[in-house]
């Protein structure tokens, strides 16, 4: 698989519409693809992950389930084992707790336990992230937890074109892929607007390979390694600091498994300074892994200590001001960059 290089016609789409377009194109291409989950039919997905698909493909392929995540994730696994390509939605990453056994003990391990004889080609979609006062059980990212458990790829798009291209790759992959979309990148009418949530998206087939990070802004002074919604915040801060002569490079990881360690090393090799921005909990997670990527290779690459901007190890608070105090928002990212340069 290679990134689509040929010039393609584009038009502006929201991230959710781009994601849905990839699903629809793959469903047209491959009759074994189907989508199931809670409220994915007539509702179109609580976070617009399946808008319009029921009308287009009907209830045989866009399937509302009972509120039984263990049962319907298991159903996806069994169907995948028999050669279908299910996409199964868990409404919030936070709900992993009610179905984790099927995900990490079954979906993620069957290929390994079978010595490669049984494939589980399925995608699990999940909405993640906070910023809208949904409290401690509906605001987590948790992508680091999935990435920690072997056997599943973990995809974390930040923008419309990537949402489409990464979804195409995820559906075609023969391994299980957890596709985590932050609610704040989807371009939903009922959440805070972000100008990058609507952008140019190639028409037709668009493939972004898993495991290829993207330098979304080149710079020479400091590298910000980040993912998902935090990419947008990092770009905002980089633009703000540019007139002061602080030149920030922003690396969008796009996927955590596989992790593009080469891209991290290349960028930090150039800047010698690293800020990691992650909306997941700080300890034992993504930010530590990014830092270890450098220190395992050559700690001497770092000219100054690393700064991590993540959620301090507390549940996500409800009250707006408390929540924004723990999220990796612009103020904390800016302070970290300033402290690094």
């Amino acid at each position: 698989m290679t990134m689509t290089e040929a010039p393609q016609a584009t038009r502006r789409l929201s991230t959710s519409k781009a994601m849905v377009e990839a699903i629809a194109q793959e469903m047209e291409r491959d009759p074994s693809v189907f989508y199931l989950g809670e409220d994915v039919g007539a509702y179109g997905g609580i976070f617009s992950s399946t808008t319009g698909l029921l009308d287009r493909f009907g209830p045989e392929r866009i399937i509302d389930t009972p509120i039984s995540e263990t049962a319907f994730i298991g159903l996806g696994i069994g169907a995948a084992v028999e050669g279908m390509r299910p996409i199964v939605e868990v409404m919030f990453t936070d709900f992993m707790g009610v179905c984790l056994d099927q995900l990490y003990n079954h979906m993620a391990k069957i290929h390994f336990e079978s010595g490669g004889n049984v494939k589980v080609p399925m995608v699990v979609t999940m909405a993640a992230g906070g910023g809208y006062s949904d409290g401690a059980q509906h605001s987590q990212c948790l992508w680091g937890t999935f990435a920690h458990l072997p056997g599943m790829k973990v995809v974390v798009p930040s923008n419309p074109a990537d949402a489409k291209g990464l979804m195409t790759s995820a559906i075609r992959d023969d391994s299980p892929v957890v596709y985590i979309f932050h609610k704040g990148i989807m371009g939903l009418a009922w959440m805070a607007k972000n100008p990058r949530n609507v952008d140019e998206v190639p028409e037709g087939e668009h493939v972004v390979p898993l495991g290829k990070a993207n330098v979304v802004r080149t710079g020479s002074d400091v590298t910000v390694v980040t993912l998902s919604l935090s990419v947008h915040h990092a770009l905002d801060v980089a633009e703000k600091l540019a007139p002061e002569g602080i030149d920030v490079e922003v690396l969008d990881l796009r996927s955590l498994v596989p992790l593009d360690r080469e891209a991290i090393l290349e960028s930090v090799g150039k800047t010698g300074r690293l800020v990691v921005v992650d909306e997941d909990y700080q300890s034992f997670g993504v930010s530590g892994e990014v830092v270890a990527t450098i220190t395992d290779h050559d700690p001497g690459m770092l000219r100054v200590p690393v700064k991590r901007v993540a959620v301090p190890d507390v549940p996500i608070p409800y009250a707006h001001d408390l929540e924004y105090a723990v999220l990796p928002r612009h103020d904390r990212i800016e302070a970290a960059i300033r402290a690094s340069v």
Binding site: T70, A71, G74, L75, H106
Partner: peptide, 21 residues
């Protein structure tokens, strides 16, 4: 089409998917 699971009751859900297919 044989499989087994070491986790109590968790072999039931994948069977649903095989039946579905």
């Amino acid at each position: 089409h044989f499989s087994c699971s070491g986790i109590i009751a968790e072999g039931y859900p994948p069977a649903l998917g095989q039946a579905f297919a």
